[in-house]
């Protein structure tokens, strides 16, 4: 089964898919692997594994600080692939997407990177500073390896862009719930319903919503609208405490989606 197929399957479980985000190498290499295992045990349907970058301009303070710490721990893109391989060796079978910025991928060498990622058990990618217009080469490499390149849509996206991303995005479409950077917010964006239905009218591809979702109640609200719920910053904050603290929040989120 290809990475794209494994990801699509995660949206066919009869409930909204839960996709927790964690930062590889944070707070330490080992602890980040424990965090991933704890969200898997809590029932994650997909994994979004954050690759640290020095200048993460789509991220808010929580993820900035965590990725910075991971870089200080010496985490490289190569390490992130090795960690994914470790997770697979240790029995984690949940479909996994690497979320990272384009520059480290260019430095690694795009072709080699996609090949190594496929080899390491990665199923897909989310690259927030690589819109479809700039992604031709990366996209064709992903296609060749059966890996999903997931594009994002935002509340500002025009009908033309929704159509473009709907055609291009593989596995699912990542809907950014608000205009802004990552980070938990007190309430789910009031325009989300309208935004999701605008996209839904264009495509049957699964829609997963992220940015600003931090607790069970918010997750439930979003799950009523979309096919998947992505939670990042709130879990990353817990990761600073312990994998157990992450697991508790992940269980709350998981139950909210059932």
């Amino acid at each position: 089964m290809t990475g794209i197929e494994r990801i699509r399957q995660a949206f066919e479980q009869g409930h909204s898919a839960f996709m927790p985000y964690s930062v590889l190498g944070y707070p330490t290499r080992q602890a980040s692997l424990d965090v991933v295992k704890s969200v898997v045990e809590a029932g994650a349907d997909l994994l979004e594994l954050g690759v640290p970058f020095s200048d993460p301009l789509a991220d808010g303070p929580t993820i900035q600080a965590a990725t910075q710490k991971s870089l200080e721990n010496g985490t490289t893109l190569k390490d992130c692939l090795a960690m994914t391989r470790d997770l697979r060796v240790q029995g984690v079978e949940t479909p996994a997407l690497l979320m990272g910025y384009i520059n480290p991928i260019l430095a690694y060498g795009m072709e080699q990177f996609v090949a190594d990622a496929a080899e390491s058990g990665v199923d897909g990618f989310i690259v927030p500073d690589l819109p479809p217009e700039e992604a031709a080469e990366f996209e064709s490499l992903c296609v060749a390896h059966g890996l999903a390149l997931v594009y994002l849509l935002a509340p500002t996206s025009t009908p033309e862009r929704i159509k473009l991303v709907a055609e291009k995005s593989k596995g699912f479409i990542y809907l950014v719930s608000l205009t802004g950077v990552t980070g938990a917010r007190s309430e789910v964006s009031s325009g989300l319903k309208e935004f999701v239905s605008r996209v839904r009218a264009t495509t049957d591809t699964p829609l997963a919503v992220g940015f600003g979702i931090g607790n069970g109640q918010q997750a439930r609200t979003v799950a009523e609208l979309a096919d998947g719920v992505i939670v990042g910053s709130a879990l990353v904050k817990r990761a600073a405490e312990s994998p157990q603290a992450v697991r508790e929040l992940a269980e709350e989120l998981r139950h909210a989606l059932n």
């Binding site: 819109p131 217009e133 700039e134 594009y151 849509l153 500002t156 996206s157 025009t158 991303v165 950014v176």
Partner: peptide, 14 residues
């Protein structure tokens, strides 16, 4: 050159 930015900004650039 090009436009390597998050989706939110693509319509603003246009």
């Amino acid at each position: 050159g090009g436009q390597f930015v998050p989706e939110t900004l693509m319509p603003a650039l246009a």
